[in-house]
Amino acid sequence: MIQTVSQKQVHQDITSHFEKKSSGIIPRTITLTSVIIIISILAFIVIDIFYNGIGTISWEFLSSPPKNGMESGGIFPAIFGTVALVFLMTIAVIPIGVMTALYLHEYRNSTSKVTRLIRIAINNLASIPSIVFGLFGLGFFIGFIGTGIDSIFYSSSRPVWGQPAIVWSALTMSLLTLPVVIISTEEALRTIPQEMKDASYALGATKLQTIRKIVLPQAMPGILTGAILAINRGAGEVAPIMFTGAAYYLPYLPHKLNDQFMEMGYHIFVMATQSPDIEATKPILYGTVLVLLLLTFSLNFMAILFRYKLRTRKVRT
């Protein structure tokens, strides 16, 4: 009897000690306020853009070109340009990113000097500001490679490749998004159990065959995640394409690799900063922002789903 009472008391003592909230309540409220502020900022931005932009969006807005100096009409050329840009970018960045990850993960062990060097390079590439990529694209792709092609293959004085063009924008953007693809592919490669690869080797498969038949299919969710994140980044960045190919207004859609193009982000930037009458362009501006935001949010959502799939598989194996 006495024992149980004292036990109870001790238990109460301990629990009350652990649940004593007085010492934690102040930091708890302060940090909770931070969270609430962050979420309200997000909510405010999203609601403001939805509220003001939803009225503009119609089939006509999405499918027709701008008219009257951007004050009416739609944004179809900008949407087309964005899609074309990220399509070309994806073609360039996915093979290179996946192969880099394969090389780091399958061909080299993680402590070798080469691996470390490449990893440092990837980290650096990820931390370079996007405007620097724009300068690089202007100087290297247009000024060096484009002009080089012109001087070798074309005799006319008018630049053919040595001018801002969608292909140079896409290549610049693919350098910017390369780290994203490499990192998420590597994350996927890490979840593939060694036993599976060993089993493949035991059946007489070569390294390349193992990679093609075992490693790559298993890494698919990770590669897709990387691709989606890269597309997301590519669709949203404006600084790298400002000098390398984006145009303010074009009467035609880009149909050759060396055409200039219109792009949603750049369209927003130009309309917001260089429009003579901001009130008149505002509805279209909001509509464009809403389309871009919907695009990036849905891409983000897809990436989260794929990553979730990958994570749950890791638990299962």
Binding site: L42, N232, G236, L285, N300
Partner: peptide, 25 residues
């Protein structure tokens, strides 16, 4: 489960949209 997606959404907003928001609103 509310906070994490919110932060992810915030990081998904393109900088040109934030610039637009700051400029106009």
């Amino acid at each position: 489960e509310v906070i994490k997606p919110a932060i992810e959404m915030l990081s998904g907003i393109p900088s040109v949209v934030l610039g637009f928001f700051a400029l106009i609103v």
